[in-house]
Design a protein around this nucleic acid. Structure first.
Lengths: 248, 248
DNA sequence: TAGTTATTGTCTCAATTTGTTACAATAATA
DNA sequence: TATTATTGTAACAAATTGAGACAATAACTA
């Protein structure tokens, strides 16, 4: 490639050393659960959107900042699920390749080559409302189905696995559907979310009865979607009573 | 007090800056759930057992090391449950008091006065097998019932609350009883553990039926404990099939 | 306009799980 | 041998969940 201007990378005066976050951003396209994966410039490295924590910023806020920059969304449902602290995590060679291929001039002992502990969060966003933006270091940021993920760098596949595991455990108690669907949705839409998260088919009648008995849904007008059949009702979540743990 | 020799505190070359752990160590005395709380020398500061992570050590291993030093136990059930990363966490004045009252000579910019993110774990240990040892900085380390905790420093009460919340959620799926009881126990012992964790009374017959139907217990000989009544069976967990997530 | 089709909402009954009560078995003691 | 407290399990009721049936109904077709 041609010579680029050598740029100065971020100084570690702004950020906490050894501390990073990674985010598993879930979206739902109506059929499948997907996550956002980015690809670094001029490398074959696929990674989760992550970043560093500023010295005067809480970890939660750092993650929110990263999500805002990449999705444009302000109010994102966020859940911290695990912190990855193995000594085998650091991959200075990977980091060096990424920075060098982005035209940065980095010293041998640059802070990003140190060991990092990563605090991992998952986010739930409305797939339709967002057009993800690649950051400065990335070529692209795209939705991938969980069963068609590219090979992810470092321990990011492990992070995805743990995120999905936690999402499944939280499915009933955290009203996951609310954050993956548009405000109004049919019972079938909601069932598809459950099926995508759990990875299994559910029985229609039992699911409907269970959801209606929970007293969390409000029924609205019918949706005439052009199908040659009875029109389904639209529902929304009886929100605002709900616990919203990690909103901006 | 009399003058002490000024000692040199640990250097930050050994440890990762800004990174700490705290542990909520649960034990069960047959009636109540208790946790270990330590008191620093010459202060009124009560705190959870915590520590720092060495540069060549995983976070898990750092926690295990701290537990080994304080309890003498090697194989401790450990579960990471949350990372606390608020900017309001750091309390340099508290840290300074602790170190100064321990006779350490510390500079104004000593690393322990920086901001710390704390990775929190809970541990389950067999109350009877352990005689906790205070560490170098502490006067004492003692068992406290959850409803009789002293006022804890910094955000440690919040950490305890979250630990208990997570323990409750994990009660059924992680075989908590196994790690809080001696190897052999009666059904009543097990029920007491459940009641202590959940903070509510359970119905004897339903509990017994539920536990026996799970296929996780092995029945042994009867326990003749001198009571003027039918002797209960002893049980142990059908272990080794069980997922053991965080053993040393 | 009446019949066709696919889907929806709800009902019913069966199967399973859980709540509750009852009761016989049994160690130690009087 | 009777008494007492507790244990293990059975029995029945209540609640929840599984599975199938069926009427209602949009849009389309004849």
């Amino acid at each position: 490639m041609e010579e680029k201007n050598k740029r100065q990378p971020p100084s570690n005066e702004e950020f906490m050393p050894h501390l990073a976050y990674d985010s598993v951003i879930f979206g739902f396209n109506g059929k499948q659960l997907k996550i956002l994966v980015l690809e670094y410039h001029n490398t074959d490295f696929f990674a989760l959107p992550g970043g560093f924590v500023k010295r005067d910023e809480s970890v939660d806020d750092a993650v929110k900042r990263g999500l805002r920059e990449r999705t444009g969304l302000e109010n994102i449902y966020l859940e911290q699920f695990h912190t990855f602290g193995d000594v085998s995590r650091p991959a200075p060679d990977v980091m060096r390749t990424i920075l060098m291929n982005n035209g940065y001039e980095v010293k041998h002992d640059y802070w990003m080559f140190d060991r990092f502990v990563s605090i991992a969060y998952y986010a739930l966003i409305n797939y339709e409302e967002v057009s993800p933006l690649p950051d400065e270091l990335s070529d692209s940021i795209n939705w991938y189905s969980l069963d068609e993920l590219p090979s992810l760098m470092m321990d990011h596949q492990q992070i995805v696995d743990k995120a999905l595991e936690t999402l499944r455990e939280n499915l009933d108690k955290k009203l996951v559907g609310m954050n993956l669907l548009p405000q109004k949705f049919t019972m079938k839409n909601l069932q598809k979310v459950y099926e995508a998260v759990l990875g299994e088919k559910l029985r229609r009648t039992s699911f409907q009865r269970k959801m209606l008995s929970k007293d969390i849904l409000v029924r609205h007008e019918k949706l005439f979607n052009g199908g040659a059949h009875k029109a389904p009702y639209l529902y929304s979540f009886k929100s605002k009573i709900v616990k919203e743990p990690e909103k901006v």
